[in-house]
Design a protein around this nucleic acid. Structure first.
Lengths: 149, 149
DNA sequence: CTTGACTCCGTACTACAGTACGGAGTGTAT
DNA sequence: ATACACTCCGTACTGTAGTACGGAGTCAAG
């Protein structure tokens, strides 16, 4: 394995060089120091792993900010376990909430598809209507309005 | 029912006036013409319905662009139900995949918390490993590099 | 008939997540 | 030893989804 330059890492991780730099700027990945001997920065392979993790987590609906926190849990052997544990618990709650939400969406979509005849004119297609009049997922409704008609 | 002005519509739909205008600019809702007699635009109540549809669809994970397409399908009498169904199915697949991965993270966090004795230093948190190694999603790997080691 | 609330419209700004650019420095293959 | 590819770094630009602002016009109540 050759000296891992930023472009090698980027390729390994399936992102562009600029994206790697962007994550560095955002503090999501460490920027290795420039060799005192001069020349280009040398990256540990783990950086590529880490970037893949970031992309995965993003797809799961985590923001870069949240991912940073997630990564902090890992990069924190110095802190007392209790702290890490607490953060992990917070994240866990968050994740559970997200899973629940996702499942709600999944169910909603499944219902829509099941109710759809599969072909025919849109008049009878229930998907649109179902989204329009969703009795099924009246989960949150921020109606703080006072009927000021 | 009073003359529906933009703020009434916005309130009806649970969004801000600026958001209604934004959707108008984006072509997601029609802007009614200014009355020839002068004065303010009068909105049909359906506009509020439509905006609620937009927000619902957003919660289902559709982007405004996708929603615009959905809306176009709806107003196109030649649309076959299957078209709509297909889009929903695509989203469903996406959501299902995400739920599965999310659960991976959930498990990882649960393990981490369980493994944490409550205090003391923490060696390893394999949150990264939790989604880093899933055989399930080695889907795209744009390795067109020719082993340029 | 004046005041205050609301409309209209354009422009500008925000946050997020990148992507692109350009010039100077550096590494390496031929 | 020179060309070419790549790095480094800052700045600027992109797209998405809004949110805010400010001035001019309009409406409705007192």
């Amino acid at each position: 394995m050759k000296t891992m330059t930023i472009s090698k890492i980027a390729k390994e991780a399936g992102v562009g060089v600029e994206t790697v730099r962007f994550y560095e700027r955002k503090g999501l990945v460490d920027q290795p120091p420039k060799p005192s001997s001069g020349g280009f920065r040398v990256y540990p392979i783990e950086t590529a792993e880490q970037i893949r993790f970031i992309r995965q987590a993003q797809e799961l609906g985590f923001s870069l900010h949240e991912i940073k926190e997630l990564l902090a849990l890992r990069t924190d052997p110095t802190t007392d376990c209790a702290d890490v544990r607490e953060q992990a618990q917070t994240k866990l709650d968050e994740v559970k909430r997200k899973v629940a939400q996702m499942k709600g969406i999944q169910t909603a979509l499944e219902k829509l598809i099941a109710a759809c005849p599969g072909e025919g004119a849109l008049q009878v297609c229930s998907i649109i209507d179902a989204i329009e009049t969703p009795e099924t997922n009246r989960t949150e409704q921020k109606n703080k309005e006072g009927e000021k008609s």
